[in-house]
Design a binder for these strands. Structure first.
Lengths: 202, 202
DNA sequence: GTCTATACGCAGATAGAC
DNA sequence: GTCTATCTGCGTATAGAC
């Protein structure tokens, strides 16, 4: 029944991703995934042996999806202020396409730290180069002297947090008005760039 | 066997809180909680009828714990810069005592938005007063003109995110060195105050 | 109030027919 | 490769003895 190789694998993987990301690992049953994929439960085991293995592949896929575009920005020759701006745009675009991803990843890593170790081992992220550049610009007087890691965490925080906390913010700060949050998020890109540059420039 | 009224309830509630916060709602079994409390499984049902009801009480308790101290800061007559500084200290102290709380709350609200609605209805948070004060100081030229909600989200993001993302950051940015992260977090308070004030002052 | 015993369903996983 | 049937264990919850 399968024309292309791995067609069914991808079909399952996509379905599993949607459910896992929405309901979490322990909150998802194999039946949920089978229903989402429109197939039979044993087929999941046939193709992925176990829920554990299926989840691992989903996690890895979701996790890695967030990196290539960002790496491209970080490895470019642009000054920090430009990288920052591009990072905000790139990351925001990804998050708009998969807004549930941050909370999914943060939660899985928190409740099962082992899941991450394997994933990052396979790709070798190295933020050191970026730290060096930041320190360089601090030396040159372009940026205010500070701990580059604090800058990095701030950047991630301000971009990612609103997505992870959206349901909270929507109810507490926006009275449940979802459309208003959308507007807020649209304007946020411009705000962030200004806000951030003001803090780090010398 | 119970001397004080509600002694057993509290014992269970505390145990349940520890397990729920660590493993999440769906990742926690009643047996886990009974073991943690050192009691028998049916006793949980006797005191709380169902896992659902037990969880609801835990969630509400955890959620509300984060508010009174913060509310005190927000309702004071201090200028924004002072409130900000106190907020960072207060929130950080709470988070240091229960560092897993952010990811617990964010995840539960994301996977089951209904849980939040009930909790906030009972306490009536109102950030509008704070927004007005921020706008006031903007009018007076103390703060740079901006959207107060963006400021608010930035503040929450920079304080809360490092706790929610700690396992991630620890592995990716600190090479798994936990002690170094502790040091980083200690220094972060001072950094945050400077960083933030630079961004918002006129 | 606290226990043992138990009911019942659904979870993940596999056997085996087609 | 895909299905039905089935195994086994664990999940929540309750009945009933003490």
């Amino acid at each position: 029944m399968e024309a292309l190789t791995g067609e069914m694998e991808n079909k399952i993987l996509d379905a599993a991703t949607r459910v896992f990301v929405r309901k979490g690992k322990t909150g998802t049953s194999m039946q949920d995934i089978a229903d989402e994929a429109g197939i039979n439960r044993p087929l999941l085991n046939y193709y992925f042996r176990s829920k554990e293995r299926l989840f691992d592949q989903v996690f890895y896929k979701v996790f890695i999806r967030f990196l290539p575009d960002v790496a491209k920005v970080f490895n470019s020759n642009l000054p920090i202020s430009e990288k920052l701006s591009k990072f905000i745009d790139t990351y925001t675009e990804m998050l708009n396409q998969s807004p549930l991803t941050p909370i999914f990843i943060l939660n899985e890593v928190a409740t099962n730290p082992g899941s991450l170790v394997e994933a990052i081992r396979k790709m070798g992220i190295d933020p050191v180069i970026l730290f060096k550049q930041i320190e360089d610009e601090m030396q040159k007087g372009i940026l205010k002297k500070d701990d580059p890691r604090q800058i990095m965490v701030n950047m991630l925080a301000m971009v990612i947090f609103p997505y992870a906390a959206r349901p909270m913010l929507e109810h507490i700060m926006f009275g449940g008005n979802s459309a208003e949050v959308d507007l807020f998020m649209e304007k946020r890109n411009v705000h962030l760039k200004e806000f951030f540059i003001r803090s780090i420039k010398a």
